[in-house]
Amino acid sequence: MSDKDTTHFGYKEVDTGAKAGLVADVFHSVASRYDLMNDLMSAGIHRVWKRFTIELSGVRSGNAVLDIAGGTGDLAARFADIVGPTGRVVLADINDSMLKVGRDKLLDNGRLGNLEFVQADAQYLPFPDDSFDCVTIAFGLRNVTDKDLALRSMLRVLKPGGRLLVLEFSKPDNPLLSKAYDTYSFRVLPVMGRVVANDADSYQYLAESIRMHPDQETLKDMMEDAGFTRCEYHNMTGGVVALHKGTKAQ
């Protein structure tokens, strides 16, 4: 068996085929407290990061939007308001627990009509070619087993001229901030996870998976290799999070 058959799950090396199941277990475990933990861990700043993603998406009335790894539907809810009744928003997630939480939340808030919910793997998106004006994936790409395959799949479903936005944790550009961020991730986060969600391991995985995720420049290169053009990224909160944008050539 070659080395290609293993991949990372946080700092651990696991069989490629096993990663999806392990990631699924993490999200089954945190789904019910996902929103609360996000607010606590980021002090609410994740809402600002997502708002900037929406601004940069350039989504307009009547557009078709695919939100991959949409989780509890923060982006999908806002997109549904923007695209209006003539538009279409698909909230996709590989994890059924997350999808159920997201679907219930959106329906309970009266959002329906232009919203669809699909359980889908980002690597093999079950949509025809050239279907969406915009594809977003927020805090999901680092959990995907084969990121290149997923990026190519996203390119395929985008319409020519469509935009992909990848919002993901990244590498802080300031060494001092980087040190403080490490301390926070490995000392505070697991404790917070244990106290609030009764699950320290999942939040330990979160910190590890962020460190294993490609940095800003590497991800930009990966997007270009997948076939995206006009690739760029914006660092937010000192590079703790980066928003990558790429366009499908006309």
């Binding site: 600002v48 990061w49 900037f52 914006h234 937010m236």
Partner: peptide, 12 residues
Amino acid sequence: IDPALHTAVFAA
């Protein structure tokens, strides 16, 4: 300016 900063101000 960090985009997160002005986005937060505009949101408020």
